[in-house]
């Protein structure tokens, strides 16, 4: 790791001010991704603003009937929160599908959104990477790209966003609350992360120095009919090749409302509202699900070693929607929800 100075903030305003007063500063929450990137010389902050004393760990109801997740609540405390389990089980399942118990005890909600891609070329400083070093090229295009994007990629970057939690947050249409040198603002979840385009070095739409303070979940949690289906090389502690967050609101057999978001396929959590519209008002049948799935992968492009993801995604969407409609969870994840 490169040398850096460290200070610990006790108030959001102090953290923002401290960050702004140091060239090359970065915030550190749980640190699980940032320290890893610093050890690999991918991230080289000269000053760290420690956030773990900020009063942002609570999980509380919002006046609108939703739930506010503190940016510094850990992924574990969020997943196992009673209100999250009861009202937003999709979020509970998505968080528990990611990382390990140790990492979930450290990683924060804000940090989960800000984790960087696990593209091996991004991590390997001996190879070109437009995200790490703009203009240097992309090692993944034409290289080993089994884990890479099939949707929304660009000629500069085919990296994927690695989060599970964010796929549920996209499906639930969360709102990101941020604080920065110019004050506070909120960002709809769909607008938070970016597609790579010609600026793959930017993962999200935070302005310099802005800090995530919380995530607001709307009142609607789709607690009856949901599924988080994660497909990966081993059934625990691995990143998704393809994951699907499916949520339905049913009136008898008719789909009143639907949400569909995918992980492991794009530079950002991939919510497809056109596919959702194909589900709404339709009977909850395999044919309806197949039409929505076909819509999602309509524009998918393989890069060679990840071509399999297109068919995998199509089938995973149908399966997740079926599980959601049946009110059953992903079979292998049911035990994650057990209680003492």
């Amino acid at each position: 790791m490169n040398p850096f100075t460290y200070s610990s903030a006790t108030a959001v305003e102090d953290a923002v001010r401290d960050n702004a007063s140091h060239e090359g500063a970065a915030y550190i929450g749980g640190g699980t991704n940032l320290l890893d990137l610093m050890k690999e010389n991918v991230a080289r902050p000269t000053h760290l603003v420690g956030l773990n004393k900020l009063p942002l760990t609570s999980i509380e109801p919002t006046p609108e009937g939703g739930l506010r997740l503190g940016a510094l609540a850990t992924n574990a405390d969020t997943a196992w929160n009673e209100e999250v389990k009861r009202r937003y089980p999709l979020l509970n399942q998505a968080i528990l599908a990611g990382a390990s118990p140790q990492l979930r005890n450290m990683a924060t909600n804000g940090g989960n959104l800000l984790q960087r891609t696990r593209c091996y070329y991004f991590y390997d400083t001996a190879t070109p990477c437009n995200k790490r070093e703009p203009g240097s090229g992309c090692g993944a295009i034409g290289g080993f790209n089994r884990i890479h994007a099939i949707l929304g990629a660009s000629e500069q970057c085919i990296a994927t966003h690695p989060s599970d939690m964010c796929i549920a947050l996209a499906a639930l249409a969360a709102t990101v609350r941020v604080s920065g040198p110019r004050g506070e603002r909120t960002i709809p979840f769909e607008d938070f992360h970016r597609l790579p385009g010609t600026t793959p070095e930017r993962d999200n739409n935070l302005e310099p120095g802005e800090l995530i303070t919380g995530l607001d979940l709307p009142a609607k949690g789709f607690e009856k009919n949901f599924s988080y289906l994660k497909l990966r090389d081993r059934n625990s502690y691995a990143f998704a090749l393809v994951s699907v967050a499916a949520a339905l609101e049913l009136d008898g057999d008719t789909i009143k409302d639907a949400r569909l978001a995918l992980g492991g396929v794009a530079h950002k959590p991939w919510r497809d509202q056109e596919a959702e519209n194909l589900l709404k008002g339709q009977p909850a049948t395999p044919e309806t699900f197949a039409r929505a799935a076909a819509k999602v992968v309509e524009s998918a492009v393989g890069q060679g070693s990840n071509n399999f993801k297109i068919e995998l995604a199509r089938r995973a969407i149908v399966r997740a929607l079926k599980q959601a409609a049946e009110g059953s969870q992903h079979a292998s994840d049911v035990f994650l929800n057990s209680n003492p």
Binding site: Y6, S8, I28, G30, G31, T32, L35, D36, L48, G50, N52, A76, P101, Q102, L103, N105, M106
Partner: peptide
Amino acid sequence: GKRINSCLSLAVM
């Protein structure tokens, strides 16, 4: 009382 990876955490935290 909670398990963590001590390699991905700074002592100062």
